[in-house]
Amino acid sequence: MQDPIQEITHQLSRRDFLKGSVLGLGAAALGSMLNTGRATAMEGGRDLLPHFVPKAKRIIYLFQSGAPSQLELFDYKPKLKQMFGQELPPSVRGNQRLTGMSSGQRSFPLAFGKFEFKQHGKSRAWVSDLMPHHTQIVDEVTFIKSMYTEAINHDPAVTFVQTGSQQAGRPSFGSWVSYGLGSDNENLPTFCVLLSKGRGGDQPLYAKLWGMDSCLLSTRG
């Protein structure tokens, strides 16, 4: 058998890292856990080894519910502009299910945001006029345009984005991060969730997303 470290390094591509973000973060984070000397080999299990020298010490994760659509921010779709008003072709729609919100609709015209896009920085990233400050830092940012949820409703989709599974009850982002990163403070929760104040009644978050059933209570938010 090969050196397991090498094997992991080879196996884990960036895509894998992002796809299994929870595991990815866990593995990334475990490194710093090892560095602090707090790690103990998991008995009976395969050692979890980081695939690069870990740098992350803490992770801030913003969940911007109700933000403008990516089509108006950074996901430039010139074809949409061209086909504005035309019916969504079956070749694109495929077997996509409709939500109760749109299943009553009798036509599905294509629409395009009204904001201008330009390319910025060395990466030539497309960013709309809505984010003038972002245009200055595009080279520091990773845009991910391949994320989607299978769920078509808010609850399971938000649950998926927060936990990696659309079924409620799985450990959340914060749980995994603290499971991986560990915590210098053994007495207080290892991560915390800050909720935005402001206009009430538009917060699609629920306590179940960080007070999970199937995770150690010690990694509860």
Partner: peptide, 9 residues
Amino acid sequence: QTQEGGVVD
């Protein structure tokens, strides 16, 4: 039980 308007019954 869900009350979310967009669900598939």
